[in-house]
């Protein structure tokens, strides 16, 4: 929730810190010199054209992608090849995917309790109670015993959010959470994410939903060609974009002349 310059700079409070991060796919330079600090409780929206590296960026945070140069420190743990640290980070970082990736052979409730039981070693009754609470909060408790294939897209994504929350993460990553949904279901998922933001969760959201960015984000990051081109608070970002490429992108997205 902090937006002041000073808070954002205070080292130990940073939730995520990217320093000089580069990544290559083969010879394709997909992330170029990324420097970004995400404070605790801050909500970042990352936008940009496809192929700009925004998904790659957040997937580096929980090591689904591996960066080749620079350092990424998540919750005071640096991400290296050390498996123990990676597991530590993954316990504290939750991720919601564009394609939901729910486990089709388990019920919604079982999807949610799987990790708490097997990773946090929670007793089953406690896990069930916590999962039910979270499913209630995303308003699909009545689907708890159904299988993912029996739910609508919007319900599935909300279930995926609940599943990630069941691990009580400190940071939540969203990779284009509404891009695979029919238009009428986008709102229910965005509402869920907004409620989450209001509770103070640190979030990085990759999305094209500019309304959400305006309403919820503390800062908006525009990426293009693997580099961060511009970042600012939402109001100045949308009203007075500075860089040419930002203006071009916003033109295309918002159909407004800059």
């Amino acid at each position: 929730m902090s937006t002041s310059l000073a808070d954002a700079d205070r080292g130990d409070d940073a939730a995520i810190r990217f320093v000089g991060v580069h990544k290559w796919y083969g010879s394709f330079h997909v992330l170029r010199n990324i420097n970004l600090t995400v404070a605790r409780g801050e909500r970042i929206v990352v936008c940009g054209p496809s192929g700009s590296g925004k998904s790659t960026l957040i997937r580096c945070v929980n090591r689904l992608e591996v960066h080749q140069r620079g350092s990424i420190v998540v919750d005071n743990v640096e991400l290296t090849d050390d498996i123990k640290r990676i597991d530590e980070v993954r316990r504290e970082v939750g991720m919601v995917f564009q394609n939901f990736n729910l486990f089709p052979h388990l019920t919604i409730l079982e999807n949610c309790t799987l990790a708490p039981v097997w990773v946090r070693k929670m007793p089953r009754r406690q896990a069930d109670e916590m999962a039910s609470e979270l499913l209630e909060r995303v308003r699909i408790l009545n689907q708890a015993h159904k299988y993912p294939g029996q739910l609508s897209g919007g319900q599935q994504q909300r279930a995926a959010i609940a599943r990630a929350l069941c691990m009580t993460p400190k940071i939540m990553l969203f990779d284009e959470p509404t891009s695979s949904l029919d238009p009428e279901m986008v709102k229910e998922v965005l509402d869920t994410m907004t409620a989450l933001a209001q509770e103070g969760m640190t979030m990085i959201v990759v999305t094209h939903e500019m309304g959400f960015a305006r309403q919820v984000a503390d800062r908006v990051v525009f990426m293009d060609g693997g580099e961060i081109v511009e970042l600012n608070a939402p109001l100045p970002f949308f009203q007075h974009p500075q860089h040419e490429r930002t203006k071009l992108f916003l033109n295309q997205i918002l159909h407004v002349r800059y």
Binding site: T3, A8, D9, W24, R219, V229, Q242, H243
Partner: peptide
């Protein structure tokens, strides 16, 4: 480089991947 607002001035050059990451 990190602050509340940021506008890029010069583009990042494209580089070749480090030795151990290629070839």
């Amino acid at each position: 480089m990190d602050s509340l607002a940021y506008v890029r001035e010069a583009s990042e050059p494209e580089e070749a991947p480090p030795m151990l990451s290629r070839g």
